[in-house]
Design a protein around this nucleic acid. Sequence first.
RNA 1: GGUCGCAUAGCUCAGUUGGUAGAGCGCCGCGUUCACAUCGCGGUUGUCACAGGUUCGAGUCCUGUUGCGACCACCA
Length: 769
Amino acid sequence: MTAEQLDKTYNPKQFEQQIYSSTEPMFAPNNTGGETYSILMPPPNVTGSLHVGHALTYTIQDILIRYHRQHGYDALWQSGVDHAGIATQMVVTKELEASGVDISAITREELIHKIWEWKDKSGNRIVEQQKSLGCSAPWDLSRFTMDKEFCAAVIKAFVALYKEGLIFRDKRLVNWDTKLMTAISDLEIRNEEEEGTLWHIKYKIVDSDEYVTIATTRPETMFGDAAVAVHPEDGRYTHLIGRNALIPYANRTVPVITDKYIDIEKGTGCLKVTPAHDYNDFAIGKRHGLDVISVIDKSGHMTFKNVPEFLQGIYVKKARKLLLSKLAEDGAVVREEKITHTLPYGDRSGTVIEPLLTDQWFVDAKALAKAAVEAVERGEMKFHPEKWVNTYLEWMRNIEPWCVSRQIVWGHQIPAWYGSDGSIFVEEDEATAIARAEERGISKDQLTRDPDVLDTWFSSALWPFVTLGWPDDDAPALRTRYPTSVLVTGFDIIFFWVARMAMMSLRFMKKVPFRDVYIHALIRDSSGQKMSKSKGNVVDPQDLMDEFGADALRFTLAFMSVPGRDIKLGKDNVKISRNFITKIWNAARFLQFKETQFCSELPETVTGKINNWLIAKLRKFQQNIDQNIREYRFDYATRNIQSFLRDTFCDFFIEAMKLHEDERAKIIAGKVFVEFLRISHPFIPFVTDRLARSLGVCDSLLMLGPDVSVLRVSISEKDEEEVDQFIELLHQVRSARQSNGDVDGEYLALLERQRSWPGELNLVATRIA
RNA sequence: GGUCGCAUAGCUCAGUUGGUAGAGCGCCGCGUUCACAUCGCGGUUGUCACAGGUUCGAGUCCUGUUGCGACCACCA
């Protein structure tokens, strides 16, 4: 490696790209049979582009991977992309519609084909951005949740779970998105508080002049009422129990029943029970054997059955208005009460979610959760920071069946075939399903395949072992790398992904998927606001990288990764990091100017107090970083990098070097600076590699861990202490001079003490003060 | 309603085992003779949210209060 003169200014744009491509071949795992270190990269959505949250999570993972690779581990960072069922189908559908395609007119196969086309064309954008950030993943090993092998694995897992009774089909109330026309899981809805109205509405009691007044926020569902319920001990209504109430305009009566679920204080104390459109009402209905009467269809309109003519086929919100004006006209609205309540909205579509009764596939999450809870309780999978273990356990212990079928086309089609007689065949392929059906006397033509696809998170849940080779139990990666070392992700993904990977992994691999789970912070804007497109406060990491360099962004994100606190990211923070990196650059320039030797070996015994002191500080620095990495304290690590370079190396050592010319010091300075570059490399890979090359040290620091010879060299601990004291005194002298002027007695006394210091410190003292 | 965080300098935040309150930014002063003004040297800035308790000693441990935030659940 030949040295070259460093530019006067640090200009990351000039070399980052080039450094990346020249080191890329070295990102592959070495597969030498040594100790492995593996990280699964959370697969970004195929539709995604890099946002600051990604930048943070990838920076942390890349630091870990580079560090372990440098330290001789067989390191694998398994990358990939997620097909992101609903999100992707939405994006492509929108694009097609915008270009004038009538979505309702194209077939399932055509749409799937279009999405593949889109994926091949645009699905790789985020990988390019990951590369700009410096992510050192072996991209040729990258997986896609819809690639052939992955699909086969998903189907295999589904069939296995089904045959074990851990997946079942049932008619239940599910969260239905009327815009996307699919079921979604509990996690895919977000509840939003808003102002609403509670209408008190009279139902006439049959064969009487009395009325019963119910309170509801959703009057339009009254046509699905199956009862009016009161609390058994509510004296106000005892006389009505067992009577029948007439539903307005419906020509239908419902009984007044009692149930302890009813809250006497709430509303009027009378609850209209609508099993088809409310989870609690469904439960009440089940207890009392009530009919389940649907009045809303899958697109969010009133049905044509069960609903009076003037509301048939009308959109729910409009139907509500119409009905209310008619009820008011007829004097049935007793009271309008303003309340705040929370409404469920679809995460993706933004429309109100309707609980609807439909046939769906469910995973028996409760059964799977048992092992996933126990493994964590036994400490086989550890959370960092530890507090997140409570979030995980709490959710796992109260888990409900997971609805995994989606009424869309982009995803893994459920391997279930239905016979015309209602029989179900769940098999890995069509041929087997047909064979099984024929055994039961059902011909091929009488079989239809379930059109639904699986929830995207179902395949994501299998990510840890499928990417490593499952279902081939002998796959080398599966044998040597499972369980993986650590999963790095945000807390919002604990339920969606971490918990489900734990469940599936324990079922199929009998072991936890990773030893550690590192939960990182959420990034907010500089004033602490959550970033969102609608607020317009989204910071684009690409912009920051363009302006300050990828290293500056990485350093900033690591620096601000304080456990348990959100990151308030502003441009200024990145600028400060850039300034620090410039400082490193200039330190290198100085050493180059001084014709420092970068490649010579350390002498067995270091002479010179300051030289000894520097070596001692370097050792501590190295040990600190090791500990920081072990404890996932990237904030401490970057602080250590900063203070070593600035306070220790530049502000004292280099300054002393200027005053006290010493050939030994040049050797030490070169050696220590190179060690500094190696140790810092995982955090700021581009600039450290660039400097190592320019100074003629090596082609890349990617594989070069800290030199252990630094640890072997014998140094005097007394020297370290002595120089520390000297520096302390130096501060006092400077301070005294600044505030009191040169003539002050205190200053002179301090100066005297300083000058009496032995060896080269004396020399330095005379000139530095 | 349940759970979990957070509160330290003007701002953003460190403070690891209980032992003299810190950094960066900002601000003020000084400084461009051999890296760096994207810099250096020095200075300024505190009721550690509040109230109790444990302790020789509490920013740190315990109890309570207030404020802010997040998540989960429910809502007639």
